[in-house]
């Protein structure tokens, strides 16, 4: 367990009287990627929000780099763990320029050198520096998601939590964002946890995949085994069949 960047053990999350996450355990090595797939309501996004610190109402044990997490997180935690949201239209403040959005993490953490850091961040996510003083509504969906990724990286975190980062985007833009995410992971040795309903997207980025159903992690499977169809649980088999059927009708 000590070698892993993220370790989650028996995580439970309750909304009111209902258990939404019913005892989930997984771990992700440093620089690795863990994908979570499942249908809406399966609890996959809830896990991400508990890890990120957005939801403090959980029980169980979570560790980042060997340090146990408390329900309330300090500022240092948010320098190490960041999140990218599904909807790039909703995750950027509509009244703030891109410049403002990117400088916010620097101001909060008291990191200097704002000017060069912003220019470098824009270059890193392949955005022209002309977008710097634009407002979110002046950008396309793909550009906004790049801004959201750049913002998450401003404070140089080690862990990036990705909540359906491409499902609001067109497929051609999805490819660009996925390529960007793999390039960033290589250059910065980032650890990813990615949630998606799209099996092909998750399998593209993550070598290990957890399948969620009704708040339980029903199977943890390597991308390789998933591709080859060596599935254990019926739900995994069903999701795989649906994905393959659309991709290549002749194969089923």
């Amino acid at each position: 367990m000590t070698a892993s960047m993220i370790a989650v053990e028996n995580l439970r999350v309750r909304f009111g009287t209902q258990d939404v996450v019913k005892g989930v355990s997984f771990s992700v090595p440093r620089g690795g990627s863990f994908g979570m797939v499942g249908e809406s309501g399966s609890g996959k996004s809830t896990i991400l929000r508990a890890v990120s610190g957005l939801n403090a109402d959980w029980t169980g044990r979570m560790e980042i780099d060997g340090v146990a997490l408390m329900p309330k997180r300090g500022r240092a935690f948010f320098r190490r763990v960041q999140m990218v949201f599904q909807d790039p239209y909703g995750s950027l403040h509509p009244g703030q320029t891109i410049d403002r959005a990117l400088s916010e993490p620097l101001l909060v953490h008291g990191i200097g050198d704002i000017e060069t850091r912003i220019l470098r961040a824009l270059a890193e996510v392949a955005l022209p520096s002309t977008v710097r003083f634009r407002f979110p509504h002046q950008l396309s969906g793909g550009q906004r998601q790049r801004v959201a990724i750049a913002r998450a990286l401003m404070a140089e975190p080690e862990v990036l939590l990705l909540d359906e980062p491409t499902s609001a985007l067109d497929v051609s833009v999805q490819a660009e964002v996925l390529n960007l995410l793999s390039a960033l992971q290589k250059s910065r040795n980032l650890t990813y946890v990615m949630v998606s309903h799209n099996l092909a997207v998750v399998a593209h980025l993550c070598p290990m995949i957890g399948v969620m159903q009704g708040g339980n992690l029903v199977e943890t499977i390597s991308a390789e085994n998933l591709r080859a169809g060596r599935t254990q649980h019926a739900h995994t088999t069903e999701l795989r069949a649906l994905s393959v059927e659309l991709e290549d009708p002749e194969e089923v």
């Binding site: 990120s52 957005l54 935690f77 999140m83 909703g90 995750s91 509509p94 993490p105 953490h109 404070a155």
Partner: peptide, 12 residues
Amino acid sequence: SDFIAAARLTGA
């Protein structure tokens, strides 16, 4: 909204 969640995640 997500942008307030994102602001919370900056540690603000």
